[in-house]
Amino acid sequence: MNALRMHPDDSVAVLVRDLAPGDPVLLAEGEEPVTLARQAIPYGHKVALRPIRAGEPVIKYGERMGIATADIEPGEHVHVHNVRGLKPEERGVAVNG
């Protein structure tokens, strides 16, 4: 096990170990790898578990944690270089107005 998926619907997992390119992403002991890391990704950071197209929401905790700003392949590092936060109108509720 080297990655944690917080919710079954999630498109990303959090790494608990540093991964090198080609390392398997393992969500549980004894299970087949979900995918292989496409680059070096530090622990605490996120890896894509399935393809996420530009403009699609990124799902963590079963919720939308951001929007992909580029196409993301399984095994890719998912972070500020390919994800942005939700805009107020994308949240579905207004707070300040």
Partner: peptide, 18 residues
Amino acid sequence: NVKGGLTTLDEKSLGCIK
């Protein structure tokens, strides 16, 4: 936070309200 791997405010706040 970003260095540690958190990407968006949504993600950080979700981690708290969980």
